[in-house]
Simulated scan of single mutants.
Amino acid sequence: MLHLDQWIESVPPTSVYALIGLIIGLESLGIPLPGEIALVTASLLAAQGVVSPWGVALCAIAGAIIGDTIGYAIGRRGGRPLFEKLGRRFPKHFGPEHLATAERAFDKWGMWAVFFGRFIALLRIFAGPLAGTLKMPYWRFLIANVLGGVVWAGGTTLLVYQVGKAAEEYLKGASYIGLGAAVVFGAGSALVLKRRAAKSRAAHPEQSGGPSGEPVPPMQPARPVEQPAD
């Protein structure tokens, strides 16, 4: 089975936008999905030119706001019994300790728990439904929801996109630098070997080859010329 990032990379580019909006919307609604991983993957695809960063950001923002709004409506209608039922069915995500942590965040930050919850994985799936369960006024929830969706989804897309482009340029420049270094190293090695060969021939001329490339035989002493007898 493919991982989420591999799955996103395998779908057609036009489907990435809808997929990102759907994943983040379902996570915001209260379903424990890795929305952040999906957003980072789509932003890296944008950095590679596969999809538009503006399209990814807008779909992610829309999914975050709409998902949180639906979660708020479900929480307002279902109330605390909804969380108790979810806790029994999904104890790893909606257990009593998770719910207690989320409630403490709402007691401390109020409406801003919805805003800051965008940046915390635990609160991201609790923010909408819990705000509805606690009967937070909708206008306060809406302000924090919209601001949080824009800052988190838009900011994450922009940040990952810029980092991806910078890394791509760095790797591209590094490849050219590596190629240039290889050429210089190769030329330098050839020059050093050529100089060493020249010094070796100068030190041992007897081992040098003749014009034909064969060793020159040593000179033989001249034989004395015999004088005719008187």
Rank of each mutant, 00 (worst) to 15 (best):
T14M: 14
T14I: 11
T14V: 13
S15N: 12
S15R: 15
V16S: 00
V16R: 02
V16W: 06
Y17E: 11
A18W: 13
A18D: 06
A18T: 13
A18H: 07
L19D: 09
L19G: 08
L19P: 05
I20N: 06
G21A: 04
G21D: 09
G21W: 06
G21E: 07
L22A: 13
I23G: 06
I24T: 10
G25I: 04
G25Q: 00
G25R: 01
L26K: 10
L26S: 14
L26V: 12
E27I: 09
E27A: 06
E27W: 08
S28Y: 06
S28A: 14
L29E: 06
G30H: 00
G30E: 00
I31P: 11
I31R: 07
I31N: 09
P32D: 12
L33F: 11
L33N: 12
L33W: 12
P34S: 09
P34W: 11
P34M: 12
P34D: 08
E36N: 10
E36G: 12
E36F: 10
E36W: 04
I37L: 15
I37M: 14
A38I: 07
A38G: 14
L39G: 11
L39I: 13
V40N: 03
T41Q: 06
T41H: 08
T41S: 15
A42S: 05
S43A: 15
S43V: 04
L45W: 00
A46H: 07
A46V: 05
A46Q: 07
A46P: 04
A47F: 08
Q48K: 15
V50N: 10
V51W: 01
V51S: 02
V51D: 00
P53E: 01
W54Y: 14
V56N: 08
V56Y: 10
A57P: 05
A57N: 04
A57G: 03
A57W: 03
L58S: 12
L58I: 13
C59T: 13
C59W: 14
C59L: 14
A60Y: 03
A60L: 07
A60P: 04
A60S: 12
I61P: 04
I61E: 03
A62M: 13
A62Y: 02
G63F: 10
G63W: 05
G63L: 06
G63A: 08
G63C: 07
A64H: 03
A64G: 11
A64W: 00
I65K: 01
I66A: 15
I66E: 11
G67T: 05
G67L: 06
D68Y: 01
D68G: 14
T69A: 15
T69V: 05
I70V: 15
I70C: 04
I70L: 13
I70Y: 07
G71W: 06
Y72M: 08
Y72N: 05
I74R: 03
I74Y: 00
I74C: 03
I74E: 05
G75H: 03
G75E: 10
R76H: 13
R76K: 15
R76M: 12
